[in-house]
Amino acid sequence: MSVLEVRGVTVGLGGRTVLRDIDLTLDLGDLTGLIGPNGAGKTTLLRSILGLVRVASGRVLVDGRPVRPRRSTVGYVPQRHEFAWDFPISVENAVMTGRTGRIGLLRRPGVEDWRAVAAALERVGMTDLARRPVGELSGGQRQRVLVARALALQPRVLLLDEPFTGLDLPTQELLTGLFQELAGEDKAVLMTTHDLLGALDTCTRIALLNRTIVADAPPSELLDPEPWMRAFGVGESSPLLKILKVM
């Protein structure tokens, strides 16, 4: 069942068209890899789904309705470097900030909010570290805090922006496992990544993006080099295409 629909979205930034006529549908249970070169517009696409950039034309529907940030059921995991890791705050309080919009102005977190935070921490396996200052966490733990912060909203759609940057392989595998499980729990997960091999191996769908959606299919149907050459603007001899032969 489709939970997120992006229909004909075009976005201009600084006078240039960054995204052109994007169509993308996310189904519950899908773990979709959004893949494209630097500057392809991956982050911009996630931000336009969230309503953070003005869409020149087209629309984004979640559960058939336009997105409203405050009521939204879209969880967002921005890139790790956006976060002030030197801030003196515990893991649980950092996760709570995911609910600030829902808690609303002039109010403080209530019982239900703390319950949601505890459940989110449990889900990512960080319950034991709930009171640790965020500055004392490893890269993988930090990433899990960000995922928990998104889960604290109990979202049906989860958007992850390059969750694996700077993490070692075992950590990537653990997180991938987590994302697969989340997709299995009646969520649609969309993640941008530069790890092509990992994405081909674990995602249920791959969307190739370069200003527009070049291809959108299960990995098994994407073994033809042609769409990859178009998305990345490389020739037939590019080492990138060797990955496809491995699959």
Binding site: L52, P69, Y76, E82, T97, T100
Partner: peptide
Amino acid sequence: ELARAVGL
């Protein structure tokens, strides 16, 4: 970025 995303 997240603050904007959650509607602040």
